[in-house]
């Protein structure tokens, strides 16, 4: 199974161009879509989930154009949107049973499937509780459960770990990792950690354009010899931040220990560090697009 995106453009009413001539081939396995907020990731996800119409260009899933074959694509598709909610009055089981029926599963099978998937995402103990009583992490797991309930061949997951605590995030990543390798899983996120721990391939989207397409290792390779650590005084922080991309900051006894990427500036004692995907992504964005990612997000990713 393959997804082929050809010359895809999306311009919203009012002239906002969300996607610009996107060309992408996605095969089986987990594919990461990385990019800062507003890069166009969610728009691309919505088009793949058949919720938005492209302004031009085509998207093929196994040779079928998703604009013409929505129903068939939807049968193969599981989708977890960035903002996922629930019917607060329903129980987890009722919700999944309903979703299963909407996905075309027969009533009896739907009942069994709902129970099975609840167990898979470790929600079986809470199946008869109203979902309004679920925690954020439980809701996310319920979200992935609804996306998987009909065993889709293509899973589109948009910013799934935002707002989750570290434990829930890891648990969620494990759930994703447990999904078979025979599916296409597109994980859109601005949290690099999600990609680094799960994806075989990734693309970086910036201002509606694909600026990188390759493997995480390739991206890291690109940042080799560009990652550093440095200790400095607080008043030096702004000087370094103006010239380099700060990845993380640790403050101890009035001193700052920074992790940075970029070309070192004179006057400080930069020590080389082994580049990771965060470093690589930050470096790439800084070099190729001039965009800098918010340090807080990186902190979140590291945690």
């Amino acid at each position: 199974m393959r997804i082929a995106i050809k010359n895809l453009n999306k311009t919203y009413k009012g002239g906002v161009r969300a996607l610009h001539d996107i060309n992408l081939e996605i095969g089986q396995g987990m594919f990461g879509l990385l990019g800062p907020n507003g890069a166009g990731k969610s728009t691309l996800m919505k088009i793949l989930a058949t919720l938005e119409m492209p302004s031009s260009g085509e998207v093929f899933v196994d040779g079928e154009n998703i604009c013409n074959q929505r129903k068939r694509i939807r049968q193969k598709l599981g989708y977890l949107p960035q903002f996922f909610g629930v019917y607060p009055q329903m129980t987890g089981y009722e919700f999944l049973f309903y979703i299963a029926q909407l996905s075309g599963i027969k009533r009896k099978t739907a009942q069994m499937q709902a129970l099975h998937i609840l167990k898979e995402v470790a929600l079986d103990v809470a199946r008869d509780r109203k979902v309004k009583t679920y925690s954020g992490g439980m809701l996310r797991r319920l979200g992935i459960a609804q996306a998987l309930i009909h065993d889709p061949q293509m899973l589109v997951v948009d910013e799934p770990t935002v707002g989750l605590d570290p434990e829930e995030r890891i648990r969620f990543r494990n759930v994703l990792a447990g999904i078979g390798t025979d599916k296409i899983i597109i994980l859109s996120t601005h949290i690099v950690g999600d990609i680094s721990s799960t994806c075989d391939e990734l693309a970086i989207l910036s201002r509606g354009k694909i600026v990188y397409r390759g493997t995480p290792a390739g991206l890291i390779q690109h940042a080799r010899s560009k990652a550093w650590t440095v200790a400095c005084r607080e008043h030096d922080y702004s000087q370094i931040a103006a010239k380099m991309q700060i990845i993380s900051t640790i403050s101890t006894h009035g001193n700052l220990h920074l992790r940075v990427v970029g070309k070192p500036i004179p006057g400080f004692d930069f020590k080389p560090a082994v580049a990771n995907l965060e470093d690589a992504y930050m470096n790439f964005m800084d070099e190729h697009t001039g965009e800098r990612v918010d340090e807080d997000i990186l902190q979140e990713a590291k945690s």
Partner: peptide, 8 residues
């Protein structure tokens, strides 16, 4: 979005 992406 979840509902409208279903084959309904």
């Amino acid at each position: 979005q979840v509902m409208y992406s279903r084959p309904v």
